[in-house]
Amino acid sequence: MSQQGKPSKPVLADLILPVGAAAYAVYYVLSVRSFPFQAQVSGMAMAILVCLLVSIFLVRTLIGLRRGRYRLGLGDFLGPPESVPNRLLFVGFILAYVAAVPWLGFTLTTFVFLCLSFAVVGVRPWRRVVVVAGTAALVGWLFFIVLLGTRFPAGPFERLMGALF
């Protein structure tokens, strides 16, 4: 905590979690305002605790900023800058996975997700990308769906296999 003598520390990213927590705490309190006491009590207590801790944190940050120990900035938050676009794409693929899985089913979604992700994070040659992704998707299908009977959303591949066997 004592940063005297060191270059100022970027703290903007450090505020994301506390501010998010406080926002949820406020929403929570609003959502329970008309409920009976026993339904409110613990959540209210937690909300007060969160808001109290976050307030202390904000005061600490403000003092740090005033004294020049902190500065507003993201610092290393996003990791090495050269790979940021690729890693953001990777996050995009993860989000696309949820959107696609109800339609494409487990096996195809996993295959496409792995192909794109391997490609974007830099696995080469392309043949290896497809082979590893394909093997993983098939092993996953065999293990999770055939063997364990997980009721994952079925897509074209699962339907085809279901029709064949």
Partner: peptide, 13 residues
């Protein structure tokens, strides 16, 4: 039973 589970997972409608 394992085979049964496997068949059960088939999704032919």
């Amino acid at each position: 039973a394992a085979a049964g589970t496997a068949l059960a997972a088939g999704v032919g409608r």
